[in-house]
């Protein structure tokens, strides 16, 4: 069949009209509300002002999750991950400005920050996964990954606003690698390794209500006054005393993208520490709202397809009526 330019454009216009009609007919896209915190949610609190940068959590994480070394230097002597990735679920990074001689200070100072999975309340990676390989545990809220269900589409990699899930690129059968809050250790009644090994309690584990209480307690502390800080897990009784820092009011993860189960406290603004400013509405609530409205009852797709068929039929009919043209 030889299709003339004129008849092609006619058909295309018809299809476009059908599409426009369908868009008007279907209900306006509405976002669903943010998901809420699971009832027995557990989480981690990272306090940048308590962190001394010992990287015990980085080493402990590797041990607990049986991860290989991640080299970034030419001599490849040490495990020196530059960021989280398929070989590293947890990393301590540094913000340093100017002479960098005072801790927890933005100008001429430095601060540490931990990067690992935020365990969002309404996670994008779970929302985008077409095969539910990424799931959020209904009770604990841990964002988990099932390699047996995964088809390797890497939508989760693209969807995460924190760049957490990462795919292995050095194997023909790649898996998604990310922190699962040491769920295997939690199943044995233990706590995540990063909280277990932290010598200052900069990373502490606990149920979300207890963590929230601890956050409020720390926010109420007067800067410079000696305070007691717990280690490992809320209620461990394993404490140490030190002067409190001047905390920011902003606790990262309380409101960002509907909240996360991994929260950060700091004296240096989070944009400087590499944590993006994010809105309170979760991305998955919006994208799911649009998608679920468009495909509701399959009405819109049927209308669009009908319009296209009609337009195509009409175009070929004209062609048949005037074979000499």
């Amino acid at each position: 069949m030889s299709l003339k330019r004129r008849s092609f454009l006619k058909g295309a216009a018809g299809g476009g009209a059908a599409l426009a009609t369908a868009a008007v007919v279907s209900a306006p896209a509405q976002a669903r509300p943010n998901k809420v915190m699971p009832p027995q949610a557990v989480g981690l609190l990272y306090d940048s002002t308590l962190c001394v940068g010992c990287k015990a959590c980085v080493a402990g994480c590797k041990e607990a999750n049986d991860l290989p070394v991640d080299v970034s230097t030419p001599d490849a002597l040490w495990d020196t991950p530059l960021d989280i990735g398929p070989k590293t679920f947890n990393v301590i990074k540094v913000y340093a400005e100017g002479t960098a001689d005072t801790k927890d200070q933005e100008k001429n100072g430095f601060a540490f920050i931990k990067k690992s999975c935020m365990h969002c309340v309404d996670p994008s990676c779970v929302s985008v996964c077409p095969v539910t390989a990424m799931t959020k545990h209904p009770q604990t809220g841990i964002v988990e990954y099932n390699a047996d269900a995964c088809i390797g589409c890497r939508y989760c990699v693209a969807s995460c606003p924190f760049g957490v899930p990462q795919s292995e690129f050095d194997t023909p059968t790649p898996k998604i690698m990310k922190c699962e809050m040491c769920k295997h250790r939690q199943a044995e009644g233990k706590i995540p390794m990063c909280a277990e090994v932290c010598p200052t309690g900069a990373t502490i584990f606990g149920p979300i209500p207890a963590l929230t209480e601890e956050i409020n307690r720390r926010k109420a502390m007067k800067a410079g006054e000696a305070n007691v800080f717990e280690r490992r897990v809320i209620g461990s009784g394993d404490t140490h005393e030190r002067p409190a820092a001047k905390y920011l009011d902003h606790v990262y993860g309380e409101k960002e993208v509907a909240g996360t189960q991994f929260r950060h406290m700091s004296a240096v603004s989070f944009t400087k520490l590499g944590y993006p400013e994010l809105r309170e509405q979760s991305y998955s609530s919006q994208s799911e709202g649009i998608q679920h409205s468009l495909y509701q009852g399959m009405i819109a797709p049927v209308v669009v397809l009908g319009g296209l068929v009609w337009a195509a039929k009409r175009a070929s009919h004209i062609e048949d009526e005037h074979p000499e043209e």
Partner: peptide, 24 residues
């Protein structure tokens, strides 16, 4: 400082840590 009190690491300026943004 009490003997049991934890030390602050004098890592200033801090070296041996990945920066917030690392060129890879």
């Amino acid at each position: 400082k009490p003997i049991h009190a934890l030390a602050d690491l004098k890592t200033n300026p801090p070296t041996g840590y990945p920066r917030i943004v690392e060129e890879q």
